[in-house]
Design a binder for these strands. Sequence first.
DNA 1: GACTTGCATTCTGGATCCAGTATCCGAAAT
DNA 2: ATTTCGGATACTGGATCCAGAATGCAAGTC
Lengths: 257, 257
Amino acid sequence: MTAQERSGGDVAAPGTTADPESALARLAGRHAAGYRSVGVMAYDIIREAILDGTLPPGHKLRQETLAELIGVSRLPVRSALIQLESDGLVEFHDRRGAVVKSLSVDQAREVYQLRILLETEALRQSMSDMGDERLARLRRLGRTADEEQEGAGFVDARTEFYAELYDAARRPIQWELIEELRLKVGRYMLGWRLVGDGTHQHSHDELTDAVAAGEVEPAVALLRHHLEVVRDGVLEMLEAEASEGGAAATRRRRARS
Amino acid sequence: MTAQERSGGDVAAPGTTADPESALARLAGRHAAGYRSVGVMAYDIIREAILDGTLPPGHKLRQETLAELIGVSRLPVRSALIQLESDGLVEFHDRRGAVVKSLSVDQAREVYQLRILLETEALRQSMSDMGDERLARLRRLGRTADEEQEGAGFVDARTEFYAELYDAARRPIQWELIEELRLKVGRYMLGWRLVGDGTHQHSHDELTDAVAAGEVEPAVALLRHHLEVVRDGVLEMLEAEASEGGAAATRRRRARS
DNA sequence: GACTTGCATTCTGGATCCAGTATCCGAAAT
DNA sequence: ATTTCGGATACTGGATCCAGAATGCAAGTC
């Protein structure tokens, strides 16, 4: 019972989400199974909680609360937070703890600009060296990605698909950069998808077809278009959130450093 | 691997030769001045030690040794190592500690491929929105970068120059990615520069001229060529090191002044 | 009644301490 | 003599403990 009523007055004021505590506890339960080190478990749990919206942007991350929620000491939590800072998901305010980093509209635009640049190039290079067995894997993964609907599995399936599409094994650094960018917008992506109309459900399959046919420019065009559609959705959502959420943010007397 | 470390140079025997120990101790001295947190100090020290070659690739990083060398506890060292892992400079081997990550020839080639892609694009965008005062700063920084010769200042000056050239302030994420890539090859860059013939000493100035004239494609060509030259130098060095140093350098420590 | 200042609470960052495990060396057996 | 098994060593990862700093509250004063 150490978590007082502060949750009502401090951070969780915008009542859209049920309190992060219980949701995060469930996450911790799912992840409870064997991990080699609790540090990476804490990292995975917090990371997933941020990505699926359990911990919304701006949320203050108290080390002790997270620690007892996950069931470990504060130390692995700190390790996890440091990693997440390098990932660009959380932000440290000197001596005042960490908060979930939020993305400005400009930053989101920048991310998609970079993703288009990097991923179209990755696709070109990947297609210049495409074998049969990679193609088969790609088709299987694409189908799975199109089928998976719910949160965690959906993200994982998509990730595997793109890892294969961009030949992550042979271009690890390129893939690392792309993953970094995808991570930054991951939390907003999911939110967008919930309100999406499903028009682009089968984009993976289409893309795979073009790749299988060896038609580079059409495939690149498809990919670019897909990214642009997602970008527009995310930007729209962010802009709405910025104008409407501005009042709430002001209500919280959060001073910036 | 690195049998020499365990044989005695690592654990005890202080003041043997000009080992990483003493060099790192000097670094720690330079950095001793006021830091808000010792964690970031440890990070800076170890990072710099890796980049300037004091801690060569493959070197085993014992937490306790680093801790007492820097003069802090093991905990901030761990924090620093975690951050450096995210930066791609060190590598953790489960339960067996961390080592300085080395770059394969393929990975180096990939890095430069990505740098050319990202940095030429960054230059194009930056030049489409170039003001007078940015140009002035750029010229000043470029001159400084061409003048600075010795290690630390050289790297810093170059970084500032490119930060201005690519308009890091207005495109923070793009700059972040570029920095990440530069970091990965930073350690090898320096080694290459020591044997460089100085032909490209004034590359910053030339580039600034083209940028000032507003000639986009010539400027991009200059930048690309510069990167290609550096890439070839680094790759050449890495290949030589891989073939000749493979057997000898593993067990025999590399003497560095 | 409002503002300022001082004190108490709380939370982060750091240090020390403890347990688990991987490596290394030696001894014994084949 | 070589190989394998067991114990000792030592290092990493985690937990608990401690100090410093920032925030919030309250009391006193203008």
